[in-house]
Design a protein around this nucleic acid. Structure first.
Length: 420
RNA sequence: GGAGAGAUGGCCGAGUUCGGUUGAAGGCGUCUGACUCGAAAUCAGAUAUAGGGGAAACUCUAUCGGGGGUUCGAAUCCCUCUCUCUCCGCCA
């Protein structure tokens, strides 16, 4: 949610900034609602003040045992007027608030302006493409041949876009989870959150009200399966006032994630890239406002560190305004090299939401100057586990069909060096 | 699932029986000043958030878990939802 003050004082700049996303949002109706709301508020408050004064007068009259009929009758009327005006203001408020929940965040000044992902900017590359004696196989083929991935049986029990891991495949997935959690321990506090959250939690992080069709909904409870650990982690401090000494707060959590993937029919239909259920290690930071962009770089480098240790070739891109997600002010994607596809694929997304989520969640902190203000939230994948498995299978495949386990994972695999 | 109790400011905790200068006693904490070489102790004062008006001093409005109702007036009465606690049942 954007800052009301900013919208009121500087609507034209805000419009221009939002326009960079290419979202095509009109603020005209909101401006009217807001004006109506403020006008009605002045009227209501005037009447309210009269009522409060009258209330004191009534007490005084009663003490002196004087009649109160006249003033009671008058106040009854005033109360009715207030009632009517309140009904009017409620409509304006509800319409205005509902609209604001659908407005995306303002991109940070450093975000490159562009229409779509083609205009994202590559920041750096790390490592180099592995060389193969013959055409590298896609990871699903490798996984099925080695008997560690079974998509057919997963489809039988659940449908398309589910995976069944077996044997060393399951062990590799678990090894990655533990490796990543251990790696992030030095800065981040480990959390195991609920995987089912309520409507409000989803609204805070921005999945609702706009993207309900992407979520798995549990109708009987009006609850949702989380699409990312970001949701419960960010909601940890909902409606809280923290002290500046507590900040920044770093959290890491392993969670399964659940996504409907509505509208992505035909995309990545094979393999581990796009699943309805996948595992992820998520990093979330609660930051003082002045250091959130420094911490974004920190977050990014913490996520990169995982790929470096796994010795996987990757690049970092800065998303352009047209590719930025709804709640984000600035996002870096980390893309890992996928040899079979011959391209980089997103494996982590690190974002600074500034106060966008904090305002929705009302997460504030007391500054050293004693002011209470909304803090900044950041999150990043550190990393998506399924995609990491895919990257390892493809990048580390050998001519004989086996797959080498990255050295750092071997202690997590009981010393296994190679899947054959 | 059944029966009951509760939710008040940064924290603890009165007030709810009998609705009326109660934005809310008291304590703790925090801040400022006095005392002190300094500190502790002590004393005095200050100490919520949001929004409106005003150059400012200041002033008005809302907020006692959320929503709704009764009333001239609600922390206080009624309804409802959420959460917490106690007892019983069931359960990994």
């Amino acid at each position: 949610m954007l800052e009301l003050k900013r919208l009121r004082e500087d609507i034209n700049t805000v419009k221009k900034e939002i326009e960079k996303r290419g979202a095509g949002i009109s603020f005209d109706a909101w401006i009217k609602w807001d004006q109506t709301e403020r006008e009605l508020k002045v009227q209501i408050e005037g009447l309210q003040a009269r009522k409060n004064k009258a209330s004191e007068e009534i007490v005084a009259l009663k003490k002196k045992q004087l009649p109160t009929d006249a003033i009671l009758a008058e106040m009854k009327q005033v109360s009715q007027q207030v009632e009517t005006l309140k009904l009017e203001i409620k409509t304006a408020q509800e319409e205005g608030a509902a609209f604001l929940l659908t407005v995306p965040n303002i991109p940070h000044a450093s975000v490159p302006v562009g229409k779509n992902e083609d205009e994202n900017i590559e920041i750096r590359q790390w490592g180099h493409r592995p060389l193969f004696p013959c055409t590298p196989r896609p990871h699903w083929e490798i996984g099925e041949r080695l008997g560690i991935l079974d998509f057919e049986r997963a489809a039988k029990m659940s449908g398309a876009r589910y995976a069944l891991y077996q044997g060393l495949g399951a062990r590799l997935e678990r090894a990655l989870i533990n490796f990543m959690l251990d790696l992030h321990q030095h800065r981040y506090k480990e959390i195991i959150p609920p995987l089912i959250v309520n409507r409000e939690s989803m609204t805070v992080t921005g999945q609702l009200p706009k993207f309900e069709e992407d979520l798995f909904h549990i109708g009987a409870e009006d609850a949702f399966l989380i699409p990312t650990g970001e949701v419960p982690l960010t909601n940890i401090h909902r409606n809280e006032i923290l002290s500046h000494e507590q900040l920044p707060i770093f959290y890491v959590a392993y969670t399964p994630c659940f996504r409907r993937e509505a509208g992505s029919y035909g995309k990545d239909t094979r393999g581990l890239i796009r699943q309805h259920q996948f595992n992820k290690v998520e990093l979330v930071i609660f930051s003082p406002v002045e250091s959130s962009y420094t911490l974004l770089e920190q977050l990014l480098s913490d996520a990169e560190e995982v790929l470096k240790r796994l010795e996987l070739h990757y690049r970092v891109v800065a998303l352009c305004t047209g590719d930025l997600s709804f709640a984000s002010a600035k996002t870096y994607d980390i893309e890992v090299w996928m040899p079979a596809q011959g391209k980089f694929r997103e494996i982590s997304s690190c974002s600074n939401f500034e106060a966008f989520q904090a305002r929705r969640a009302d997460i504030r902190y007391r500054t050293s100057a004693g002011k209470v203000i909304h803090l900044h939230t950041l999150n990043g994948s550190g990393l998506a586990i399924g995609r990491t498995v895919a990257a390892i299978l493809e990048n580390n495949q050998q001519a004989d069909g086996s797959v080498l386990i990255p050295e750092v994972l071997r202690p997590y695999m009981g010393g296994v060096e190679r899947i054959v």
